[in-house]
Write a protein that binds this DNA or RNA. Structure first.
Lengths: 188, 188
DNA sequence: TCTACTATTTGACCTAAGTCAAGTGTATTG
DNA sequence: CAATACACTTGACTTAGGTCAAATAGTAGA
């Protein structure tokens, strides 16, 4: 599954220049300042954001607490999946944790491009498959790993996360309280 | 998201007869007896199973315990998603909980059909999107609901599950121990 | 019907993680 | 520099749910 991203990249590289041009022509760059929102709750996610630089996160509120569902780094595609797919109001927020440069593509424009360039449908499929596998893996981790194991996993796989992001957000991404995360860190 | 299934069904109905025929011509029916396996761990999920009748489940083993990840009823598409998508060995088993009649479509045949009938790529995309939203929702429930709430949710939404399926399996689907489920039931 | 299983319940105790509250440290800014 | 805020830690206590073990149902076959 990890290699699936390289599949996607290979597929993009293999696209004819006509299709690639169609894709580029509907994308535009934008910079969000740290703390700004790319998407707010109840808004419809009408755009996808390909992160060019910086870090952002997706979260929702539950009982007044923030539950971080995804962290977006360079080359990640930041959307609220259900809101984007169904073009319905989003439960989730997407927030810039640092200054973030993104390439924006509107849902409608991409749909039109898919109609004109069928190869983009296959690309969309690969992206949806990748996301489904990613969520499956996250669910799997919550079932099989303790909080400590999940923390160590991040620490090993993506140490840059720990350096850059406040512990409150890491804790909420790990599905634990800030205090518990602090204790886990003290033990190690 | 619930309505997304009807989107998919509408889309299937809207397909031209040529595409529909291509789809039907690569599918075949089969019956699995209660207790038989549609897929075993380490096998590659080379087929998709559209459940026509009966119930089956998908699970994996962790520390000797079975973790049920999905229950399949009539009209559900039973696959091990990552194994099917990447054509890699599966972590998961798919087991018939009752006698199950399925419509089988081979991965390779479906890929070929997609190449010949581009509208099937869009169908595949919708199915992947639906699954991604389904897994997202399940993750969301594990984050926001207690075991009792999750049980009540099933009880309300799909009471037939509780009647037909042994509690051990329901407990493992809810992510709790059999004993805890029994206590939850005693309280209500 | 009796036996042997399997399914479910109940009890006693344990543990990971949450909650509330009170620190300490470290920025940032007026 | 003081002051306010933010980031993190630590302590004391609570709780949901797990584990192990034993007791009851149910149920299918000899």
């Amino acid at each position: 599954m990890t290699s699936y991203i390289s599949n996607i990249n290979q597929y993009i590289k293999s696209l004819d220049s006509d299709t690639l041009y169609a894709l580029h022509s509907i994308s535009s760059e934008k910079v969000y300042k740290k703390g700004e929102y790319l998407l707010r709750q109840n808004e419809v996610c009408t755009k996808s954001y390909l992160v060019l630089s910086g870090i952002s996160r997706k979260y929702y509120l539950h009982d007044g607490k923030e539950i971080t569902t995804e962290l977006f780094f360079e080359n990640d595609l930041a959307i609220s999946f259900e809101s984007y797919t169904c073009q319905q109001p989003s439960m989730e927020f997407i927030e810039a944790l640092t200054d973030v440069k993104v390439s924006i593509t509107y849902y409608q424009a991409f749909q039109a491009a898919k109609a004109a360039h069928p190869k983009l449908v296959a690309l969309d499929l690969m992206l949806a498959e990748y996301y489904a596998m990613w969520v499956e893996k996250r669910l799997f981790q919550f079932h099989t790993q303790t909080a400590t194991e999940r923390y160590l996993d991040i620490l090993e796989r993506s140490p840059h996360i720990i350096q850059t992001i406040p512990l409150t957000i890491i804790a909420s991404y790990l599905g634990i309280s800030l205090e518990t995360l602090s204790r886990i860190r003290a033990k190690i």
